[in-house]
Amino acid sequence: MKVGVLAVQGAFAEHEEILSQLGVDYIELRNGKDARQDFDGLILPGGESTTQGKLLRELDMFEPLKEKLVRGLPVLATCAGLILLAEEISNDTARYFGTLPVTVKRNAYGRQLGSFYTEEQFGDLGKVPMTFIRAPYVESVRAGVEILARVEQKIVGVRYKNQIGLSFHPELNDNRKIHQMFLASIALI
């Protein structure tokens, strides 16, 4: 198994460290050539969605990655990654991959000072640590989207087919359950 990690901006190194700890090979996706290689899953890390979206296009990665997502490539998208996947962004006119049928609100918890940590139920994994940094949340979901987690009535974790979208950063904590769930979804294909 090999996982592609978008490595142009944001918290990609933390995801790579977890993959290494779990014994999973990964490739850093930094340009179109990388994005066209074969890999079994994709991680879209947190960071700055506008910057990531711009770099995806400038570095010739947008189309090959979108094609892989449309074909069903398993993906774990955290924070900015969730925004990249979202079909709609309620407070922004930008659109990126649009493969996840949800409406997301960018920076929904405010600026950096609005960052916080909590532990909440996540699907059938039990309580998991959740670190929110200038995080979005999911305002609404469409048919077929499973809600995996809520914090204060706000949707912060969803799954749609092979796509897992999170408002928070599981890579910033010691709990590996979410990454293991993602890797298990790859193994099922």
Rank of each mutant, 00 (worst) to 15 (best):
D38F: 00
D40M: 09
D40G: 14
D40P: 11
G41F: 01
G41W: 02
I43Q: 00
P45E: 13
P45N: 09
P45H: 08
G46F: 11
G47S: 12
E48V: 03
T51N: 03
T51Y: 00
T51L: 01
G53I: 02
L55A: 09
L55F: 09
L56M: 08
R57M: 08
E58Q: 15
L59W: 10
L59F: 15
D60E: 15
D60H: 14
D60S: 14
M61G: 01
M61L: 01
F62R: 14
F62V: 12
E63A: 10
E63V: 12
P64T: 08
L65S: 06
K66A: 03
K66V: 03
K68A: 04
L69P: 07
V70W: 07
R71K: 15
L73E: 04
P74C: 05
P74D: 07
P74H: 05
L76Y: 04
A77H: 02
A77W: 01
A77T: 00
C79E: 08
C79S: 09
A80G: 13
G81W: 03
G81A: 01
G81L: 00
G81M: 01
I83H: 03
I83C: 02
L85F: 06
L85D: 03
E88V: 06
I89S: 05
I89C: 08
S90G: 00
S90H: 10
N91L: 11
T93D: 11
T93P: 03
A94Q: 13
A94S: 14
R95P: 04
R95S: 14
F97L: 04
F97Y: 08
T99G: 04
L100Q: 01
L100Y: 00
P101N: 10
